[in-house]
Simulated assay, not measured.
Amino acid sequence: MNADHEAEFQGYVRARWAQLVRTAYLLTGDRHHAEDLAQTALAKAYRSWRRIQRRDNPDAYVRRILITCNKDRFRKKRVPERLVDMPPDGAGADPTARVAQRQVLLAALGELPSRQRAVVVLRYWDDLSETEVAESLGCSVGTVKSQAAKGLAKLRVRLGPAVERAEAGAGVGVRTS
Rank of each mutant, 00 (worst) to 15 (best):
A18L: 11
A18C: 09
Q19Y: 09
Q19H: 13
L20G: 01
L20N: 00
V21N: 00
R22H: 11
R22A: 07
T23H: 01
T23P: 01
T23R: 03
Y25A: 00
L26P: 03
T28D: 00
D30I: 05
R31A: 10
R31D: 09
H33K: 09
A34R: 00
D36N: 07
D36W: 04
D36I: 00
L37Q: 03
A38Y: 03
A38Q: 04
A38N: 04
T40S: 10
A41D: 02
A43S: 15
K44C: 00
A45I: 07
A45H: 05
Y46R: 15
Y46Q: 14
R47D: 09
R47G: 11
S48L: 06
S48W: 02
S48H: 09
S48G: 01
R51N: 11
R51F: 11
I52H: 01
Q53W: 11
R54S: 11
R54N: 09
R54L: 10
N57K: 09
P58D: 04
D59Q: 09
D59E: 08
A60I: 12
Y61N: 10
Y61P: 05
V62M: 04
R63Q: 06
R63P: 02
R64H: 14
I65T: 13
I65V: 14
I67R: 12
T68P: 00
T68D: 06
T68C: 02
K71Y: 07
K71L: 13
D72Y: 14
K76R: 12
K76M: 08
K76H: 08
K76Y: 09
K77L: 07
R78L: 10
R78E: 07
V79Y: 02
E81C: 05
R82T: 13
L83I: 14
V84L: 12
V84G: 08
D85S: 08
D85R: 08
P87K: 03
D89G: 15
G90C: 15
G90K: 15
G90W: 15
A91P: 08
A91I: 14
G92L: 04
G92N: 03
G92A: 05
G92W: 03
A93Q: 13
D94L: 10
P95E: 14
P95S: 13
T96C: 10
T96Q: 14
T96E: 14
T96N: 13
A97N: 11
A97K: 12
R98W: 06
V99S: 04
A100N: 03
Q103C: 12
V104N: 08
V104E: 11
V104Y: 04
V104R: 10
L105G: 12
L106Q: 13
L106W: 10
A107K: 09
A107S: 12
L109Q: 01
E111C: 08
L112H: 00
P113C: 03
R115Q: 13
R115I: 14
R115P: 11
Q116R: 07
R117A: 02
R117N: 01
A118I: 05
V119T: 06
V119A: 05
V119E: 02
V120Q: 03
V121T: 06
V121D: 01
L122D: 00
L122A: 00
L122I: 02
L122R: 00
Y124W: 14
D126W: 06
D127P: 06
D127Y: 14
L128S: 00
L128A: 00
E130A: 13
E130P: 07
T131Q: 10
E132M: 08
